[in-house]
Design a protein around this nucleic acid. Structure first.
Lengths: 221, 221
DNA sequence: TGAAGTGTACTTGTATACAAGTACAATAGC
DNA sequence: GCTATTGTACTTGTATACAAGTACACTTCA
């Protein structure tokens, strides 16, 4: 999420650090957080720590139990599926809006990213980064700050699962092809088609991800 | 949002009270909040107050300024438009999922709500409530908790604008007709059509709302 | 008279002390 | 040996005291 102006307060630092730990799975799903221990580990008092924890709860990167404890949410396939669906809906909207707002320069930029993506398709990490760059550009062109906000939250969540959803070369080539048709639709200024392509593209990614993690043990942790 | 288990803590009370004040415009858009004054007004110390404020910032019902102050976000037409768009995307997804999951009993329940809505179409408040009931049922059937969460946040935001977007009888009748076709699509189990109808329905509501508020002074506050 | 500098009042951010409630463990009774 | 009860240690929630930084107003000098 791009909404951290990062005023140099301890709470912001703790928030960033905690978030990093959660997304990197350094804090294990299901693990409970104890304030005094965590505070001394991070060299702050409980006050800014609590502020960071509460914020992460709001963003669903931590979970408050009815009894009062706080823990790292457990990963499961059903949640992954939900997240992909919401992402599909939001990216679909963004693609639609991008059609309406895109300038010639924007489309040129999108094609450049596509070319880079094609060149790197055999390298999983780089390909994904280019895919994200493509989407970031579309999001910027779409210009709906609320859509971006929610998309950021969903992306953060999915970051936790990324370790389990490595894509195959075949899948990446398929995704690249879909990205091409998406950019073509944007260039052609066809909102309905762009929306449909974006939606089905992400839903395809969902199916691939769910297949990839089936049997990987996610959900049992 | 249905995510307040309401553990009986002061922070929860303050959160609920502050949120109510914001949505009811008792706290004016643009107004700045001062912690000591607000704390004594609500009869709590700054600690739980701050917790509530931070949570509301996370939910975008309060806004943190770079300089450190906290204020009630200003209302403007552009934001309304963005919110309707995101709501359209999410409700569209929900309609799609509802098609897949709806049982005969669910469809019966939807038709009951429709009938009640038809009977009350001339009363703006009741009609809106029935419209919300219809959507709530669809959301429940759709069963994507993330979609519901984001939809809740968007709905909260829009609550602030509701005072300016009173609908006309004509608009309500149109909405009712669209709801009928939506339920028909769900009953027929046609996800693509249901998604399309839901999207266009909300986008229609957006256009009506934007027309209603043009000249009502929103955005100047 | 205008502008610059200084001082004061008040803001938010943080640490810490305290209170209330919860869970676990140990002991006693059956 | 098992269950119930009590006690202790530790949890989170809250209040308050303190520190650092900011803005505004007043005064002083050009």
């Amino acid at each position: 999420m791009p909404d951290s102006p990062a005023r140099n307060t301890g709470a912001h630092f703790v928030y960033a650090e905690l978030k990093r730990k959660i997304l990197a799975l350094e804090l294990k799903p299901g693990e409970r957080l104890y304030e005094p221990a965590m505070a001394s580990a991070l060299q702050v008092s409980r006050t800014p720590l609590r502020e960071a924890i509460r914020r992460l709860i709001s963003e669903n990167l931590l979970e408050q139990q009815p009894t009062g404890g706080v823990l790292v949410p457990v990963l499961d396939a059903a949640t992954i599926s939900e997240l992909y669906e919401v992402r599909a809906a939001i990216e679909s909207l963004m693609a639609r809006n991008a059609c309406i707002n895109a300038t010639a320069a924007d489309i040129e930029a999108l094609r450049t990213i596509l070319a880079r993506n094609a060149a790197l398709v055999e390298f999983a990490d780089d390909a994904m980064q280019q895919g994200m760059a493509l989407h970031a550009k579309i999001a910027a062109v779409a210009g709906n700050s609320w859509a971006r906000r929610f998309h950021g939250q969903v992306s953060s969540q999915m970051e936790r699962y990324r370790h389990f959803t490595n894509s195959t070369l075949g899948r990446r080539e398929q995704a690249l092809a879909q990205h091409r048709t998406l950019v073509d639709a944007v260039a052609a200024g066809n909102p309905d088609q762009a929306a449909k392509i974006a939606f089905e593209h992400v839903m395809g990614a969902r199916d691939a991800a769910l297949k990839a993690i089936s049997g990987s043990g996610v959900g049992i942790s």
